Simulated scan of single mutants.
Amino acid sequence: MGKRGFVRREPRPKEVLELCLYLAQEVAPPTPKGHRGRPWRYTHALYLALLLFRAFYGLTYRATEAHLQDLLEGPFPSHQALAAYAQKHLNEEVLQALLERLVQKVEARLPQEEGEPPFS
């Protein structure tokens, strides 16, 4: 509870995931469409959004997959695919910059009480 008895609203995971998808689509490279090898099943933007969601909540890969089962209806990458993508393609500086932008956008959407630090 806040100072005046108001319950402070925390961000809903669905809202955070939508913001992650929006931010990831802005910066993700295009998915390769070459002629050799198996085609990509998921886009770079989806992988980046799920890794951003994971970093925002501080989840493990398995916990991220469990949360996504509740949030997403369609198919999404497994925890193994997320870990492999992160190891091979993830740029930590880009993820950190996106995480900072995500926190700013989430804070802007939540009503703040005067004098309270965000996400306390």
Rank of each mutant, 00 (worst) to 15 (best):
W40S: 04
N91I: 03
T31Q: 04
L46Y: 04
H67F: 11
E73Q: 12
L46I: 05
N91Y: 09
V94T: 15
R54A: 10
Y47W: 03
P29L: 05
Y85N: 01
L50I: 14
H35F: 11
L72T: 03
H67M: 12
K33H: 13
S78N: 12
Y47S: 02
E26C: 05
Q25R: 15
T64V: 06
R41N: 03
H67P: 02
G37F: 09
A49D: 12
Q25D: 15
P29W: 02
P32R: 01
E65H: 12
W40I: 00
P75E: 10
P30A: 02
D70F: 12
V94G: 06
N91R: 13
L71Y: 11
P77S: 08
L82G: 10
E93H: 13
L82P: 14
R38P: 04
H44I: 01
G37P: 12
K88P: 00
H79L: 02
L50V: 14
T60W: 08
L46Q: 15
L90K: 03
A63S: 12
P29G: 06
Q80G: 14
E65P: 09
A83P: 11
P75F: 00
P77T: 06
G34K: 04
E26I: 13
Y61S: 00
E92A: 12
L46S: 03
P75V: 00
T64M: 07
E92F: 07
H89L: 01
L59Y: 15
V27Q: 06
L72V: 13
E93V: 08
L48Y: 04
T60Y: 09
G34L: 04
G37E: 06
L51R: 09
L52E: 13
K88C: 00
E65W: 13
G74P: 04
L90P: 07
L95H: 10
Q80V: 15
A63V: 08
R38M: 03
S78C: 09
G34R: 05
P32C: 01
R41A: 06
L82T: 10
Q69P: 01
P75I: 00
F56P: 14
G37M: 05
Y85H: 04
G37W: 06
G37R: 05
A45S: 15
H44M: 00
R54M: 13
R62S: 07
R62E: 13
H44A: 02
Y85A: 00
P39E: 01
L48K: 02
A55H: 11
R41D: 04
N91H: 12
Y42M: 01
H67C: 13
H67L: 12
A86E: 14
A83T: 09
Q69W: 12
R38F: 04
P32I: 04
Y57P: 08
K33L: 07
T64E: 06
Y61N: 01
H44G: 02
Q80I: 14
T64D: 06
K88W: 01
A83E: 14
Q69D: 05
Y57N: 05
G74F: 00
R54C: 06
T60Q: 07
A28V: 10
T43M: 02
T31S: 09
P32K: 02
Y42V: 02
T31A: 07
L68D: 08
E93Q: 10
S78P: 09
F76Y: 12
K33S: 11
Y85F: 14
A66S: 13
Y57C: 07
G58Y: 08
E65D: 10
